[in-house]
């Protein structure tokens, strides 16, 4: 494992912790898209089907369990927690995400590394992760004001993607047979989706002002 991959995994972990902290400390999930969280839960469940069949390292196994567990816990809190669910911005979170799920699954049936149950679901999870942030970005755009923890959550998620791209460049240069087009192309698409958000995040950070997205 190289430093970029580790930095990517750690920023991913931090983003999840920031989100859990926000929900736990403020007992509120305002500004958070339940649809994006449900998509992430789907992403991790579909991707880590190999959890019990292929052992890569203790690190991988633990991280997989953490990502599955935390995404399910967040979805559960937003849907069923007596207090938290009241702050959910239901009327702003109307992205028709089943279209994304359908499109990604269709794409996975066509474009995969091998036509097997695990591989198709793996490709599906990669495609779905690339677009899973869309309901969240739309929600932020609609509400205009972004609270600090929500802004940091999206920032760390974007940083995770950026580090993974550096990781792939590093692996491409150092590993003789490193080619994985599905991950890399999807990863580039995913990171590009954050570009707009990053632009406004850095402007607000530079001006020491509250993050606001243009309508």
């Amino acid at each position: 494992m190289n430093i970029f991959r580790l930095a990517g995994d750690m920023t991913h972990l931090i983003s999840v912790l920031v989100l859990l902290l926000k929900i736990y400390a403020t007992k509120s999930c305002s500004g958070i898209s339940l649809k994006t969280q449900e998509l992430y839960a789907m992403v991790f469940l579909a991707r880590y089907l190999d959890l019990f069949s292929d052992f890569i390292s203790l690190y991988n196994t633990v991280m997989k369990l953490v990502f599955i567990g935390s995404s399910l816990a967040i979805v559960w809190c937003m849907r069923y927690h007596r207090v938290v669910r009241r702050s959910y911005d239901r009327e702003l979170d109307t992205f028709r995400y089943w279209i994304l799920v359908g499109a990604c699954f269709t794409l996975a049936l066509v474009l995969h590394e091998k036509f097997s149950f695990q591989e198709v679901f793996w490709a599906f999870s990669i495609y779905l992760e690339a677009v899973a942030i869309l309901p969240q970005l739309v929600l932020l755009q609609r509400s205009g004001n972004v609270d600090n923890l929500t802004g940091q959550y999206v920032f760390f998620l974007g940083a995770y993607r950026a580090f993974y791209i550096l990781n792939w460049i590093y692996r491409y240069l150092t590993e003789p047979r490193f080619t994985r087009w599905i991950s890399c192309v999807s990863g580039l698409v995913q990171t590009a989706l954050y570009a707009d958000f990053f632009y406004y995040y850095f402007i607000s950070w530079k001006n020491n002002a509250k993050l606001q997205l243009p309508a």
Binding site: D9, H12, D54, I56, N60, M63, W122, Y164, N167, R180
Partner: peptide, 10 residues
């Protein structure tokens, strides 16, 4: 081993 190494990322 090669096949397993395919999905060694998270």
């Amino acid at each position: 081993p090669l096949e397993q190494a395919m999905h060694d990322e998270l």
